[in-house]
């Protein structure tokens, strides 16, 4: 059967992930090459995220890794959406790494998880993005179709 570029690359990544992952990152589910779930934890003592685990949902298109995967936080019973000025309460993440402009095919699932870990670690504001309520209520688009305006380089 024809194996796509994306499948091949993802199976390599999965193989590696099954071997070992950096601290605070664990694989939850990878039943196919379209959708994976991973759990991440913040490793330091940042009070906002202390003792919390967050679930990430990865969705891969057939153009991965040329195109970025769609990465969102997923709310589950004991997996809240982390508080962060760039994370909407529906789990959508505003991070240039995940957009067409910031993405590079050398990134991978592991590096995304680590970037998100450090994005949380470095945050000191226990708040949602501006206009969160409105965005969450009105957004019907998929994250890849949203035009984020990346302006804030401090977090």
């Amino acid at each position: 059967m024809a194996t796509s570029f994306a499948t091949k690359r993802l199976s390599k990544e999965l193989n590696k992930i099954n071997g070992q992952l950096p601290p605070g990152i664990s694989l939850v589910k990878a039943d196919d090459f379209q959708e994976w779930q991973l759990d991440i934890k913040v490793l330091d003592n940042n009070p906002i995220y202390l003792n919390q685990t967050y679930r990430l949902m990865f969705k891969f298109s057939s153009s991965y890794p040329i195109e970025p995967p769609e990465v969102t936080f997923l709310a589950c019973p004991d997996r809240p959406i982390p508080m962060h000025p760039h994370i909407y309460s529906n789990g959508i993440i505003c991070l240039d790494l995940l957009g067409m402009q910031g993405w590079s095919p050398v990134q991978n699932v592991e590096s995304i998880c680590m970037s998100l870990q450090s994005m949380l670690t470095g945050n000191t504001k226990n708040e949602r993005p501006e206009g969160d309520q409105q965005f969450v209520a009105n957004n019907r688009r998929r994250p890849r179709d949203i035009d984020f305006y990346y302006h804030d380089n401090t977090v």
Partner: peptide
Amino acid sequence: MNKPSKEEAFDLS
């Protein structure tokens, strides 16, 4: 899509 568990024709090294 094929499952990761399925035997793949390519090298996974």
